[in-house]
Computed example of a mutant assay.
Amino acid sequence: MTDSVTPSQIARRTSAAVDAAVGAGRDLGLAVTDAVVLHDLFSVVVHLAPSPVVARVPTVLPHCTDLASLAHRQRAELDVTRWLAARGTPVIPPSPLVPREPVQRDGFSMTFWRFVEERREGEPDYEANSESVADLHAAMRDYPGRLSFLSSAEPEFVAESLTLLDKRRDLIGPDDLDRARREWQVLEPLVRSRAAFEEAFPGIDVQPVHGDSPPANIFPGVDGDLYSDFELVTLGPVEWDLAALGPALESAYDRGARRNGMRTLNGDVLGFVNAVGMLRVIACLTLTSQLPSLLGYLEPSIEQWRAMPFAGGVVGRHG
């Protein structure tokens, strides 16, 4: 069994990320006297007060992610959000006070964002959020930059994790791992190749999409809701952004799609993205040594996966 980090080790990791963000911010000319950690899970998000700038420092990453590949992903996020902000789309934009590039320091790669005051009263309205994702998709359709097809599925991470989990039977049993590997044999070609996807799902267009469950990544700002956290922005079917959210939120999205003159969600593609999303959940078991609390979030999804059709029913269409 692989040892997991201890609370004290997590605290040191957080402290190191904060120190790196403060040092990088000061090197860029920001006044930083009171760094405040706003969030600490997969990334340390720190307000570099009194400057109106937030640094986001990824700290829990797949073993196959290095600083170069992380920076490539971060540049895509910065480019997309800068483009959306310039067109009036309500997003948290990159900070205009520093160069809009990832900054590497002390083994971390970080990005800098405009500080937005959070509205703390009330609970998220996920149906309203899901409906508004169609507005985001309408805004993103014309993005002129280059994005990789379904990079947010992280196929290298999934493939590597299914190998690593063979030695982590404390995390997943042999029957579950065997099913996951057989599903990946079906799904991987459609994840890695746009042409294979389009052959399996004729007539389904792809476009720039958020990549990481945008209904759960809408920031409640005091002056209005803002789309945020485009770390996994990608080219793919719109269904990718609604993966595993269920019929009520799918119906809410469809209302927004019809309002925007866009197609509604396709059931077969939803089956595909739901299945791929579940294999990403299983892959995330390999991250629990870095973030032990993650296991409690993953286990309910794995229970749900066991009751789902094999490979989301894709095997009957492309097998």
Rank of each mutant, 00 (worst) to 15 (best):
T2Y: 15
S4E: 13
P7V: 03
Q9H: 10
V18L: 01
A20N: 09
A21N: 10
R26T: 13
T33P: 14
A35Q: 11
H39M: 06
H39E: 08
S43I: 04
L48A: 09
S51L: 15
V57D: 13
V57M: 15
T59I: 08
L61R: 01
P62R: 00
D66K: 09
D66F: 15
A68R: 10
S69W: 03
R73I: 11
Q74G: 11
R75T: 05
E77H: 05
E77A: 06
L78D: 04
V80F: 02
L84M: 06
A86V: 10
R87H: 11
R87F: 10
T89S: 07
P94T: 06
E101K: 05
P102I: 08
D106E: 15
M110Y: 04
T111S: 09
W113A: 03
R114M: 12
V116I: 10
E117R: 14
E118V: 02
Y126N: 12
Y126M: 12
Y126Q: 13
N129S: 03
A138Y: 05
A139N: 12
M140K: 01
R146M: 04
R146T: 06
S148M: 15
D170Y: 00
I172K: 04
L177G: 06
R181T: 07
E183V: 05
W184I: 07
Q185A: 13
V191R: 09
A196Q: 14
F197G: 01
E199D: 12
F201M: 14
F201K: 11
G203H: 13
H210A: 00
G211S: 01
P214W: 00
D223Q: 04
L226R: 12
S228L: 05
S228T: 08
F230M: 05
F230A: 03
F230V: 05
E231K: 08
V238E: 07
W240R: 13
E250N: 07
S251L: 03
S251E: 07
A252Y: 01
D254T: 14
R258N: 07
G267D: 12
D268G: 10
G271K: 02
V273F: 00
L285R: 03
T288R: 02
P292A: 10
G296M: 04
L298G: 00
E299K: 14
E303W: 07
E303R: 13
W305T: 06
A311K: 08
A311Q: 03
A311C: 10
G316Y: 06
